[in-house]
Design a binder for these strands. Structure first.
Lengths: 301, 301
DNA sequence: TAAAAATACTCCATAGGTATTTTAT
DNA sequence: ATAAAATACCTATGGAGTATTTTTA
């Protein structure tokens, strides 16, 4: 049995006239009669009551017709789902992100993508940069939102956002009321920073700024979460240098101050990048990359 | 697109190997590759990621596969429904019946048919014999349960049940305590009978019995419902002659007495017949007739 | 270099066409 | 008498086979 038989049957069942049905199907009447006969013989039951003058559906034909129409509906559905999936309009994407992406980058990015592709399911995983690289390799996520640099073949990355660094001080700090901070004034302060192992992309620029100011910071604590750093600063445990977007997370007891302009602070920025498998050419990924690299970058920059 | 394409696709998607899939399909590998290519080109999107060494489904192919499997399920369902309907195991039958068939004939008949063919929907219509003939002609019912005779080409009938007639008397009647009644003793009584027009098959034998006993009954009321006749008898409005199965409908104030055996009472019985369109050869009808003429008659007789 | 898909071609089965017959109205 | 389905027979498209090439793991 082929779809041809079912198409022919459906048309004859609608027209109840072999001649007209054949015309509608752009074939001659005899081969149509033949195909219907073949179908009936394969099915093992009659679809039509025919006299030489009139055609009507048997009860079995009536029941079969209803179900055959559903086959065609299901076929349309299959094609539609395939086409939408091939265009990336339908599908699934797993995204990893570092906690500090939640302040502005992630929400904006997801909003824009969702608006364009409402039928793509998005799965989110908060993970440190190094975990994301593992998950990418294992195929557990398709795209990561990380602090560069990363060096790994099979993965591609692309910077999508850069922002300046700010100093975080407890509100009682002697410098809490100045407009901008000269970094060298912090030489004697205890620093609360990310642990280098988990976020070198954020740790290294901070160290670089300090060294450009002539000192090596005294790091008293290595943290994973930006929120933890802010808490410790508010508790007078020390000062920190953080990406400017931390201001979005309103927090009592802490003030953020820009770094007084100098060569190092201009050069060393907090950078966010996306990373994905070089051989991943799934339509959903392509649409997502498109959305990020066009919509997102134009919004944020 | 033909089912062939979908069958081939499904097999390759399962095997993820053109050679093995071709073997499973009992065709050579090159035509299989060709058919899949044709399918992809018709669909307008790729189903497989192929290198010369390995095959995997694209996301679109994955989605398409799931829906294609449903097509085959739906096809199986269509065939199954058609086959069952063609055998009369699935379907619908509309049955008309006279009120007096409800005492024993109809329930037994339906029970037997239902046991054999639980998936046939039965629609019931209580109608007088003459209305049933109209509805049969109009196709509103497929089978009637009537009081013969009927004479109408295009309709066939078959007697399925005969029973003796009994006299119905009010309990206070002077003959209420005899064992059996000589009909001629009722010559002076008012008779409550069916209206001849609606049920000649029941009216005529009764008149015949009376005339054989030497009188023409004085009919005071023409009723449609047997229940109404019984009510009127119990209210002392007169006597009646009814099919013996009326005894099933227990009723206070009325007694039923057999007619003292004579030629006429042996000869004139209440007869029930089924009637259907001569050109109706729907499978459900055939199964129903089979059930009635085999099971039912052997039960009742 | 070996396994597997694609390409090139050949063949024939069968879908579809034309001419005619049959039959019910 | 006529409309419409079935039958008979013919044609040719394209599905399937065989031989070979290409590619990559």
């Amino acid at each position: 049995m082929e779809l041809r038989h079912l198409r022919y049957f459906s048309t004859v069942a609608t027209e109840l006239h072999f001649g007209r049905a054949a015309e509608k199907l752009h074939i001659a009447q005899p081969p149509l009669s033949k195909q219907i006969q073949d179908l009936e013989s394969e099915l093992g039951f009659e679809l039509f009551n025919r006299t030489k003058r009139s055609v009507s559906l048997t009860p079995a034909g009536k029941g079969f017709l209803i179900e055959v129409e559903r086959i065609f509906q299901q076929l349309d559905r299959a094609i539609d789902i395939g086409r939408k999936t091939s265009r990336g309009e339908l599908g699934q994407i797993s995204i990893g992100f570092v906690g500090s992406a939640t302040y502005n980058i992630l929400p904006v990015m997801l909003q824009q993508f969702r608006d364009r592709y409402p039928n793509v399911r998005i799965e989110l995983h908060e993970l440190t940069t190094d975990r994301q690289l593992v998950w990418l390799r294992e195929g557990r996520i398709d795209l990561g939102l990380i602090r560069p640099p990363i060096v790994e073949k099979n993965l591609v990355s692309q910077v999508i956002f850069q922002e300046s660094l700010v100093v975080a001080l407890p509100i009682s700090h002697r410098l809490a009321s100045v407009d901008a901070i000269d970094i060298d004034l912090l030489a004697a302060e205890p620093f609360i920073l990310f642990s280098r192992q988990l976020a070198p992309g954020l740790y290294d620029p901070i160290i670089a700024i300090c060294q450009a100011a002539g000192f090596s910071p005294q790091v008293v604590q290595g943290c994973i979460q930006m929120q933890t750093i802010v808490s410790l600063v508010s508790a007078n445990m020390g000062v920190s240098i953080l990406p400017a977007s931390i201001r979005e997370a309103q927090r009592q007891g802490v003030v953020y101050k820009p770094i007084r302009s100098n060569e190092a602070s201009k050069e060393h920025l907090a950078t966010m990048a996306i990373v994905w498998r070089i051989n991943d050419n799934s339509p959903t990924m392509n649409r997502f990359l498109e959305s990020v690299l066009v919509d997102f970058r134009s919004t944020i920059k």
